[in-house]
């Protein structure tokens, strides 16, 4: 069967790609568009390393088909910094040493950004439950939670 032709928007840019019916959005981002920031940790939606926003909704891109992105707006880690300016979450992750190996970091950052868009003033518990779908094996989450809370405070102007 011929491949599907998908027209979509990724990080504000209009893009097109060809994909197989069964190809995941994650594979399309990585293999067809060379956007390697989203990572494959499990392919079953359990680890969150492939987190992206699809029309503003946080999803595991390994559980979305490439064809489902047709006409949608996809946001990945590559679109998070504005020009040469890091997003406050990115900056706080560096300041708090909230990453060790860094493989989960793109997914955690995308998920945290989605949280702060919904809830600019989350409690520690809310941060922990929101990020429960993003596995990190290095940090024990302590510094991640602190970085998210600190970024939220800065973004609120607190």
């Amino acid at each position: 069967m011929a491949k599907h032709h998908v027209t979509t928007t990724v990080n504000g840019d209009p893009v097109e790609y060809l994909c197989e019916s069964e190809q995941s959005l994650l594979d399309c981002l990585r293999d067809e568009l060379d956007l390697i920031g989203a990572k494959e940790g499990c392919s079953s939606g359990d680890c969150g390393a492939c987190s992206v926003l699809l029309d503003g909704r946080l999803v595991c891109s390994c559980l979305i088909l490439g064809v489902e992105a047709e006409g949608k707006n996809v946001e990945t880690i590559e679109g998070m910094a504005q020009g040469e300016e890091l997003h406050p979450l990115q900056r706080k992750f560096l300041e708090h040493a909230a990453l060790q190996c860094g493989i989960c970091t793109p997914g955690v950052l995308v998920a945290a950004k989605a949280l702060l868009a919904k809830n600019p003033d989350p409690t520690e518990t809310q941060v922990r439950y929101w990020l429960a779908g993003n596995l990190c094996r290095c940090t024990g989450y302590d510094k991640i939670v602190r970085a998210v809370m600190d970024a939220a405070a800065e973004m609120r102007g607190a």
Binding site: R30, D34, L35, I36, G37, A38, K39, E40, T76, I77, E78, M80, A81, L86, Q90, F93, L94, E95, A97, L99, G102, I103, T105, P106, L109
Partner: peptide, 23 residues
Amino acid sequence: TRPIRPDGVDKVTGRAKYGADLK
């Protein structure tokens, strides 16, 4: 002291290349 790690920016921007990231 606690300076920012030199490999940090690449890791928060998705630029860092891991095992499956090279073509």
